[in-house]
Design a protein around this nucleic acid. Structure first.
Lengths: 119, 119
DNA sequence: TTGACATACCTTAAACCATGAGGTATAGTG
DNA sequence: CACTATACCTCATGGTTTAAGGTATGTCAA
């Protein structure tokens, strides 16, 4: 009880989707992604760095992202951009997400004319 | 890897949401819920019984559902209906889900100067 | 000059959730 | 008699997010 979650419970896979999309728009580094997601969703999502960094590493290892390390103002930065495979993966993820939204809507809106599943 | 999942990866919390909604429409038993979800979503979701039953038990323990056991044609049935608290919880879950959808849309549509799309 | 804060990277244990496989039992069909 | 459908259930596994921690530099104010 005392469900003190910072984020809603519907997030499985969403961080990866958003990361791929944002990086497809413009190369970014991890810390920047964390801030951007929080700002763009108006605090609806607050994915911590412990969520974002592992995903970035995994996507890079899977060939979805390319990393470039640089030094800016004495600090390290690892900037990521999506590869061709990453764009394909993004398209799949978006389609998958839209399918989920559609399926949930179908159940939530099916009130009266819901057909009995069993005879 | 061969990502051979039956369901998409975006499902966290969705089964509970659908269960609450469906039971708010009409009392049902577990096996019926499994079939109904699969039928209503046209196979988009196929939540197994290992997913549904634990949720039913937890929701009942939390006072969101009321169970009634009966015997039909020699077989046991446990029919669930939502309580007053269950309906409140459902309203919260729906609101939460809509917030998630909205937040994801905001990110996915940002960057391309896209116009607000209507459903 | 000290301390706080923002930047920027990272790891790890724990919690949570769906999956997939297994188990029990009855009724009906071929 | 075997097989399928119904109807309940549990459990180990794996994947994902969380929350907390660690490292280090630059900036600004007291």
């Amino acid at each position: 009880m005392t469900n003190r979650r910072t984020n809603p419970v519907f997030l499985n896979g969403v961080p990866e989707l958003l990361i791929l999309h944002l990086l497809a728009q413009k190369p970014m580094y991890g810390y920047e992604l964390v801030q951007t997601i929080r700002a763009t969703t108006e605090q609806a999502f607050e994915f911590g760095e412990g969520c974002i960094y592992p995903i970035l590493h995994r996507l890079e290892a899977d060939g979805m992202l390319l990393a470039k390390t640089e030094t800016v103002a004495g600090r390290n930065r690892v900037t990521y951009r999506v590869t061709e495979n990453g764009r394909k993966q993004l398209a799949n993820s978006v389609a998958s997400w839209e399918q989920v939204v559609k399926a949930v809507s179908r159940v939530l809106q099916g009130g009266e004319n819901a057909q009995p599943a069993l005879a």
